[in-house]
Amino acid sequence: MISSPKLTPVRGAVQASSPVVEVLKGGLETTVQDYPGREGYLQMGIPRSGPMDPKSFQLGNQLLQNPADAAGLEIQFVGPKLKFLRATAIAISGANNRPKLNQQPLPMWTTVTVQAGDVLSFGHAHSGARSYVHFAGGLDLPVVMGSRSTFTRAELGGLEGRKLEKGDRLSSFLTDVTEKPQPIHHIQPLQRPAFSHQWNIEVLLGPHDDWLSEQDIEKFIQTDWRVSSMSDRVGYRLEGADFDFSPSAHHKSPDNGDHPSNKIDYGCHLGTILFCGQTPTILMVDSPSLTGYMAPFTVCQASLWKVGQARPGDSFRFQVIDQATALRRH
């Protein structure tokens, strides 16, 4: 349930909020997310959720000088149409989906002041899959299990655990910023994530690289992988090559199952690259916490945003790096 808006602005430590937008159209799948989402609930089968592109999302909050855990909207492919109910400052980050305010092009990667009655709409992005709308102060929704992020499969967090629909109203926390002229912030083009249709993804070997042959590992690295249309916030499926697997995958305890990719159920997480039969599948923010498929590679933290921005039909090349290199990217 959305918390009842508190209409009296209170300055200082107490956080008051009031309605900021009404949803005129929901878009394909627009959800409330925050970063880093839910931590510490794998054991209950609750995924992290949060933004698919954490890099753009965090930059967006910085533009508004929002707290790091401020909640915003994630737009996937087809954007919503939003009417502002009061003056505030916003910032739009992520894929360039041609935002418009009252039909006029609106710049991204900068702070923008909007007035009551203004209408925000979107076109289509040519590259990248997800865009973010941030509101000064962040969206006010109940914190469920440590986060405001929406996990639609369990109807958890966000606005009633679901994507936005026509008629919804969202509140944002009141900040001083909304009542005086905006200091304008920009993120310069070189500091923005670079969008593409060919993505280079860095991975670490493991946990089950010993279940592939050396030739399989070489093949994984040399293949131009194509992102399948069956890719979403749960996982990204890839098409491009078949594998032989190593003797360890063929000769194993029968508890593992029949296929060489089958493994006794074990814990998995955001970034795990499962081999579901012959189909590599990168687990994303809403993934299950257990799997019965082996995983020879794991996407490094610094490359996760690229997977989250890839569109079906885009291509992936993988590069294996070591732990120390991965940590230097943080």
Binding site: L42, Q43, Y266, G267, L290
Partner: peptide, 25 residues
């Protein structure tokens, strides 16, 4: 753990394994 410095963030025990999420820094 969760009540301390959060070096260990999460654990997921299963039939033969434990997955541990930790802060490598």
């Amino acid at each position: 753990g969760a009540k301390g410095i959060k070096a260990i963030i999460d654990t997921q025990p299963s039939f033969t394994t434990v997955l541990i999420e930790y802060n490598p820094h």
